[in-house]
Structures are given as structure tokens and as C-alpha cells.
Amino acid sequence: MATRSRAHVIVFLAPAVLVYTAVMIWPLFNTLRLALYTSGEEGRVFTGLANFATLFGDPRWSGAFWNALGNNFWFFFIHMIVQNPIGIALAAILSHPRLRFAALYRSAIFIPTILSFVIVGFAWKLILSPIWGIAPSMLDAVGLKSLFAPWLGRESSALTTLALISVWQFVGIPMMLIYAALLSIPEEILEAGEIDGITGWAAFWWIKLPLILPSIGIISILTFVGNFNAFDLIYASQGALAGPDFSTDILGTFLYRTFFGFQLQLGDPHMGSTIATAMFAIILAGVCIYLFAIQTRMRRYQF
């Protein structure tokens, strides 16, 4: 084999490596590099970490940045505490061996996940709109009309509402992944538990849940990465200004406004790169925590 020409290996690898390097890896490094420059009067000037100092400390920038970062963590937190329990519950019910119409439920519950953020954002905006009145009249039907408020228009509730809309859209993914994990648990383990008198809820809590922890870990990191480069839903329903008064601004919308510009503000590629670099660092930190801290500890549960 050693004597055969190796040209074909290069031919097979070249297209993928070229496109991937040129359009993904190279721009990624270039973005990290651009964060170290600023545009002066004579073009690009190297300024080291000055942009980061501006982003984290200069009052003109830091307020918006910490606001977006805090909102982003809240967005992620809502996903974790709402999306995962609902996903696990749905998967647990679906994995019931004698459940009828399981495939039908599964496909129907997954439908929101395939819709674009634009559709989802506008659809919920219309439904929650006080003008149309679907949400208030439905609450009225169950006697809870007093609970209604223009949730998307209020600073105190807009971000949480958007996070819940996003949960509504994406709950299908944890449901599917956990469903798959539950189906892969060997029957013998459950039967062994039964002999010891562990059934029903106890079996779920003490046997199945520990076994699906690795899947919950994967879902958490996928959610983390997804949330920290989210943009579309907020942009589609609240616009680039992430209103009201920036209360729904997250890193994605902040990045968009900064580097692309909006209305009267001009785009600034260098500050944009700085924000992108911060996002990169946050995502990288999350992935590393997952890989080194969580995944290695969970391995002992796998069979």
C-alpha cells in the first residue's frame, strides 16, 4: 500500500478542508484578531486589549454589555428550569411501552421546532397582543382575565416571555433525545429493580433518571451554545433595539447592532469583533466545563 499514490487522499479531503477553513476557521481567527485593532485616522491601528477595556469598563459600552450578558444568562436559566423538566416529563410519558399514538404525539409536539423564529416570533406576538385579544379572552374563559398583561411590551416580563416562547419552540429536542435515552435502558436493569420492589415513580427517580443524566448534560450544553448565539427570535419579535428599553437585549442582538449598525449609529467592526470574541470565550468556557467537568464524571453511568 505504501507504494500507491496518495493523491486521492488529498483530492478527497481538499474541498471540505478548503471551504471549512476559508469560510469558518479563517474568519473566526480574523474576527478574534480584529478585536485587537481600532479604526483610526490612518486606517487600522493596533490597540491590544483596549477594546476589551472599553467593552467591560467604559460607561458608554459596559452598561449595554453587562445588560446583554445578564439577560442572556436569564434567558438560559429559564430554558434550563422549564425546557428540561417538560422535555423529560414528555419523554417519560412517551416511552411508556403500551402507549398508543406515541408516534403521532411525537411528530405533533416536534412541529414548533421546525418553524423559523420569524414565524414563531410573529405568531406569538399576535396571540399575546392586547389588540387581537386571543390571550385575554382565553384567560377570561377560565376566569383569569385579571392575570393578563401585555407581557411582551413590559420591561419586567418581556425577556421571560420570550424565553418561554423559545422553550415552547424547542422542547421537542430534549424530548426526543431523552426519549431515545430512555428506550436504550436495558429491560434487565428495570426488572432487577422491580425484584427489589422499585416500580413506577421510584423506578423513574432512582433508576432511569441517573441513567439519562448524560443526555441531560448534552441537552444542557446544546442549549447553552444555542442561547449564547441566539438572535433571530428577539430580532423578529422585538426588532434590533430589543425593546422595551433594551430589556430583551442579548449578546446576539447587541453584536448585530454594534457591528452592522442600526438607524443613526454606524457599524463598528472592531467593537463588533470584540463582542464576538467575548461570546466565543463564553461559549468555549461552557463547552470546556461540559467536556472536562460534567462528561468525564458521567461516564461511569454508561453501559
Binding site: 476559508a22 469558518m24 476557521i25 479563517w26 474576527t31 480584529l34 464576538a276 466565543f280 463547552v287
Partner: peptide, 24 residues
């Protein structure tokens, strides 16, 4: 190493490089 290099992009969103992609 090549496998690892190509796998990097699974976890890193391409949006992070948008500024330079637009430049390109």
C-alpha cells in the same frame, strides 16, 4: 489531528466569525 480540526466546528457557532465573513 485532521479529524479533530474538522470536528471543532460542531460546537463553535459560525456566527461568531460574522464580522470577518462579511469582510471576506
Amino acid at each position: 489531528l485532521m479529524g479533530l480540526y474538522l470536528a471543532l466546528g460542531i460546537m463553535i457557532p459560525i456566527r461568531i466569525g460574522t464580522v470577518a465573513i462579511l469582510d471576506l
